[in-house]
Write a protein that binds this DNA or RNA. Structure first.
Lengths: 190, 190
DNA sequence: TCCATAAGGTGAGTCCGACTCCGCTTGCGT
DNA sequence: ACGCAAGCGGAGTCGGACTCACCTTATGGA
């Protein structure tokens, strides 16, 4: 159903406006009712639902770009760093992304810690990205083998939700612990 | 407000019935509307709300016993095992508890991964229990120091929510990775 | 240029679940 | 046995996601 017809001009405008309004609302506050988003975009809720199946689908769309970018990182990191360093950097990059705004953290948490089918694609993509990292590390004997990306993803899920004072330090610590834990059973243990 | 007066007989009965109904509903299905719980207990929702501030408070109460038990474990484990072994066992014990029913997992997740004030007590208690474990481990040079129980708690949060096939294996793996990560930077590194 | 028409937009309304309120009922101390 | 505070019932409110029957308009073909 994409591109059966190229989308009428007003429709495209509204879709864009909705995404912009949602992005604005999410990045800042983290939530926002569909009503609020529609109002910001100067359309009615019905229009919102013409373009996005559910509120969650809108959230997913808003963060798709950024998640895709995040998922592209492992391949890039692996060309510039040793696999273990690439893994470490990626985990910290994730924390960094989660920190850009309440919304991004929540989106990442939804992807990592829920099983909502709306995020299936993003979840699969991130799991695959992590798989690559882990496989490269294992092949080099720097990371224990037998761990799937999905597992690591899930382990990281918790750190993206809350925004208490000092949150980021904690997140970095957790990422570091996980990283060390992943190296612990490696062939070249050290 | 506890024990200003010993609670009228019918009130005690209803309170008990509500807890029983909720326990039954939660352990099996994981959720249940307040309406459903009230119906099961053969009282009206108003009665439910006389006894419990919010739905969450009811959840907290249902699992208080079990959480308290869980929190008592570290002290016991430390008298029988080396600190590192005690830590490992506790992490696995947590996974075990999360596995007893959808509800218990959800409750643990709420405690560990949210900041709902309803779970403040449980959260504090668990963090303290973990602190003890970590401090003992650090004192013996078996566990890296500088990690607070709260951080570990948060890291574990993600593993208690989902119930996909093979979930428990994943949870055990994550717990193991965390455990290894916690030992990684220890004084007697090995 | 103009019309037919299907794509798109609208917003009051539905649904659902948590929570409230107030009048009625009842356990229990005297 | 009586009074009344404690307790209970359940219809009602509220808030948020989502729907649908009807209206508006962009667009492409004559």
């Amino acid at each position: 159903m994409p591109s059966s017809r190229p989308l009428r001009a007003d429709a495209r405008r509204n879709r864009e406006a909705l995404l912009a309004a949602a992005r604005e609302a999410f990045l800042a506050d983290g939530d926002a009712t569909v009503e609020e988003i529609a109002r910001r975009a100067e359309v009615a809720v019905g229009t919102l639902y013409r373009h996005f199946e559910t509120r969650e689908a809108l959230v997913a769309e808003v963060y798709r770009q950024e998640v895709a970018e995040l998922c592209a990182a492992p391949a890039r990191l692996l060309t510039h760093h040793a696999p273990d360093e690439a893994l470490r950097t990626f985990l910290l990059l994730l924390v960094e992304h989660a920190a850009v705004g309440r919304g991004m953290g929540e989106a990442l948490e939804s992807i990592m810690a829920t099983d909502s089918p709306v995020f299936d694609d993003a979840r699969d993509e991130m799991a695959r990205a992590l798989d690559d990292l882990l496989a490269a590390g294992a092949a080099a004997g720097l990371v224990r083998s037998g761990i799937s990306g999905r597992v690591v993803l899930r382990a990281l899920g918790g750190i993206c939700g809350l925004r208490a004072k000092g949150w980021k330090d904690d997140a970095v610590r957790i990422a570091t612990i996980l990283y060390d834990g992943l190296r612990y059973g490696a062939a070249n243990h050290g």
